[in-house]
């Protein structure tokens, strides 16, 4: 039996404007967020959204519904966005390493104590999401590799399970968890370097 979404996709593929509207309403922002999260560019994200929805319309009739439609759409979006970024990609993996915690042989984190105990988490979101702090956050997100940003969006914004993130990007659950942790650690480190020790 076809799911509601499967029927919607078939109808949209057949040129039904109301089915297309329903799909856009359900998935438009989700596709845009992921595309924008990966490319960090609004014009590129728009091209990706058009491409993904066009694939839905043209190939959606062949979607067999074995996977959840959401996962299928996220997977198409991730592939299109990463392809678009190919060639533009900056090699940031090396610089990401220096944003991860360094460890002493006994398992303690390395660094000055004032930095290690810096806790800026009590600052209001409104302050951290505006002005200089917001700029620091956006720059930190820019420094992450695209695959890491994709995982952050799917897990922390769309709130998918690790298993669903893995299905959406075609990777293993352990790879998803590793990327997620490294991405959060790198962002935390960059924020703490700028916001932390003064508090």
């Amino acid at each position: 039996m076809m799911s509601d979404e499967h029927l919607l996709l078939k109808d949209a593929a057949g040129g039904d404007a109301s089915a297309l509207e329903a799909l856009m309403s359900r998935y438009g922002s989700r596709v845009y967020r992921l595309a924008h999260g990966i490319t960090r560019n609004s014009a590129d994200a728009e091209e990706i959204v058009q491409d993904v929805f066009l694939q839905m319309v043209r190939k959606g009739g062949a979607f067999e519904g074995r996977a959840a439609l959401g996962s299928w759409i996220y997977r198409v979006t991730t592939n299109v966005a990463l392809n678009k970024r190919r060639g533009k990609r900056r090699e940031v993996e090396t610089s990401l390493e220096e944003c991860l915690p360094a460890w002493e042989a006994d398992g303690h984190r390395s660094g000055p104590r004032a930095f290690l105990v810096a806790d800026w988490s009590g600052r209001p979101d409104a302050e951290l999401l505006s002005g200089e702090a917001r700029r620091i956050l956006e720059e930190a997100i820019d420094r992450l590799p695209e695959h890491y940003r994709a995982v952050l969006i799917l897990k922390d914004v769309e709130e998918l399970t690790n298993e669903d993130v893995a299905a959406s990007i075609g990777d293993s659950v352990s790879a998803v968890k590793t990327r997620l942790h490294r991405a959060r650690m790198a962002l935390r480190e960059l924020l703490t370097r700028r916001l932390g020790p003064q508090t």
């Binding site: 438009g28 922002s29 596709v31 845009y32 967020r33 924008h36 999260g37 959204v49 915690p101 984190r109 290690l116 105990v117 810096a118 806790d119 800026w120 988490s121 979101d125 951290l128 999401l129 917001r134 956050l137 956006e138 997100i141 952050l152 969006i153 922390d156 914004v157 959060r184 650690m185 962002l187 935390r188 924020l191 703490t192 932390g196």
Partner: peptide, 21 residues
Amino acid sequence: AYLATYRKTRALGAQAARVEI
């Protein structure tokens, strides 16, 4: 301190990326 800022980072990253088309 690490856990508190790790959680806050997760929340901030999510809010910064929560854009609508």
